[in-house]
């Protein structure tokens, strides 16, 4: 395409946008709304995957022991576990140490645990370090045949639970995203239809003096792209600010004790910006093409 044609498209596209200010604003708003929801689901998905891979690569297993075991039994178990193939190291954490750790972790909120010293609910625990994460299931199998163990928990197990729990969420959000995409395309296409309609005489004249379909479409496609991209930029900015706030919230507030770690800001915003701008661009383009289709057939 020639440079002057590109210039002409850009100029006319911007003109179209400003000619219909109210409708343009309305459709940008709805694009923002749609992209916000898409972006929120996307961030949730990213964080689930982030947590999943963190769990997957975890090479520690927690072995919670039954109540009231003698020190002797514990020491025998320790040797037994250490001899299991794939175990690299084993560390014993007593009930008391576990409680103190937790108090330390809570800091100012430690008063929550007051009174628990006499009736400590936390179990004695072995923390096993694995030689590599793949050994988790075989080690866990070996542990399951041992007595005096209340529960074994490790990354892979949590991961499976997490994936199962989020399956419905993933499917639902996919559905919502698809519906929202269609709605945004529809809204953009309707907005542009107004400009197309206002300029139908001009389109007719263009056609009979020999303009190609692409030449007629150009400005409207630019208009659609602008609607989509402006919506995309606004949605990205809003979501970025929101996510930044969430990260700080999780870090500063009590939620921290739930040991949630969110994906780093930079990583999230980079992929989110790319996604939302692309989606905005695509829905803008599709919307505009749909709206010109009828009028161009002369």
């Amino acid at each position: 395409m020639k440079l002057r044609t590109t210039k002409y498209f850009a100029k006319e596209g911007f003109n179209n946008l400003s000619r219909n200010k109210v409708m343009s604003a309305a459709s940008i708003t709805s694009v923002i709304a749609a992209l916000l929801v898409i972006g929120i689901f996307f961030i949730i998905m990213l964080n689930i995957d982030y947590a999943a891979s963190a769990l997957e690569s975890q090479i520690e297993m927690m072995v919670y022991l039954d109540e009231g075991l003698s020190e002797e039994t514990i020491s025998v178990m320790r040797d037994e576990i250490k001899s299991i193939n794939g175990v690299k190291d084993i560390l014993f954490i007593s009930k008391d140490t576990a409680l103190k750790d937790m108090q330390k972790k809570l800091g100012d909120n430690a008063y929550l645990l007051e009174g628990l010293e006499s009736d400590n609910p936390l179990p004695n625990t072995f923390i096993i370090t694995l030689k590599n994460p793949q050994d988790a299931s075989s080690v866990s199998l070996a542990l399951s045949s041992m007595a005096n163990i209340e529960k074994v928990s490790y990354g892979k197990e949590d991961l499976e639970k997490l994936l199962k729990a989020t399956y419905v969420l993933r499917m639902a959000s996919l559905l919502v995203i698809v519906i929202l995409l269609f709605i945004s395309i529809f809204i953009i296409s309707n907005t542009i239809k107004l400009t197309v309609f206002a300029r139908r005489r001009e389109i007719g004249i263009m056609k009979f003096v020999g303009a190609t379909d692409w030449f007629v479409r150009g400005p409207f496609v630019i208009e659609g792209m602008l609607l989509g991209v402006i919506g995309g930029i606004a949605a990205t900015a809003l979501l970025g600010a929101g996510y930044y706030y969430c990260i700080n919230l999780v870090r500063d507030q009590m939620i921290g004790i739930l040991s949630i770690t969110l994906m780093p800001f930079k990583q999230v915003t980079m992929s989110m910006t790319a996604l939302l701008l692309c989606v905005g661009l695509v829905i803008g383009t599709i919307g505009s093409l749909l709206s010109v289709r009828r009028f161009i057939k002369v």
Binding site: R4, I205, A211, F215
Partner: peptide
């Protein structure tokens, strides 16, 4: 000029 513009004639 419009009739020439749409045929992508040069300025």
């Amino acid at each position: 000029a419009f009739a020439m513009q749409v045929t992508e004639a040069s300025a």
